[in-house]
């Protein structure tokens, strides 16, 4: 009777001594029993859930960052457009001013010449009177 008991216990020890894996896709019956009873499968799932939760938190942060960066880019683009518009307007004004100043200077020169001539003639006339 003792020998039979030894056999039962011995076989139980052998079963428990088998190398096991915590991957539920493999390992057969012994690993399955061990994985279920020890909570190894549950831990693997929990690890993955934790990992996923971390990644999703990062994802949320990244989404917020995307919104911020998009807004920043839009604002900078608006500023650039405004500067381009201002500069174009200024360049147009300066060009027109240069052109008209050239015309004005020319007219001015002519006018000065006429005034001087007129002044001279008037003085001559006054001298003759």
């Amino acid at each position: 009777m003792n020998m039979k008991l030894v056999l039962v216990l011995g076989s139980a020890c052998l079963v428990s001594a088998c190398a096991t894996t915590d991957d539920p896709r493999e390992g057969g019956f012994v690993s399955g029993v061990q994985g279920l009873s020890s909570g190894a499968y549950e831990r693997r799932v929990r690890d993955r859930e934790d990992n996923l939760a971390r990644l999703r938190a990062v994802q949320d942060d990244l989404k917020q960052e995307t919104t911020g960066l998009d807004a920043q880019k839009q604002q900078r683009q608006k500023l650039l457009d405004e500067e381009q518009r201002k500069l174009a307007s200024l360049n147009k004004d300066v060009k027109a001013l240069e052109k008209k100043l050239a015309a004005l200077s020319k007219e001015q020169g002519t006018s000065d010449k006429r005034v001087a001539e007129l002044d001279k003639r008037l003085r001559e006339l006054k001298g003759q009177l």
Partner: peptide, 24 residues
């Protein structure tokens, strides 16, 4: 059956992890 359930859950989570990591 339970091993299969765990394996399926793991596959789903692994796929989600991969998808989220790719998005990130």
């Amino acid at each position: 059956k339970r091993k299969q359930e765990y394996a399926t859950t793991e596959e789903f989570l692994d796929a989600e992890i991969a998808r989220t990591a790719e998005f990130n």
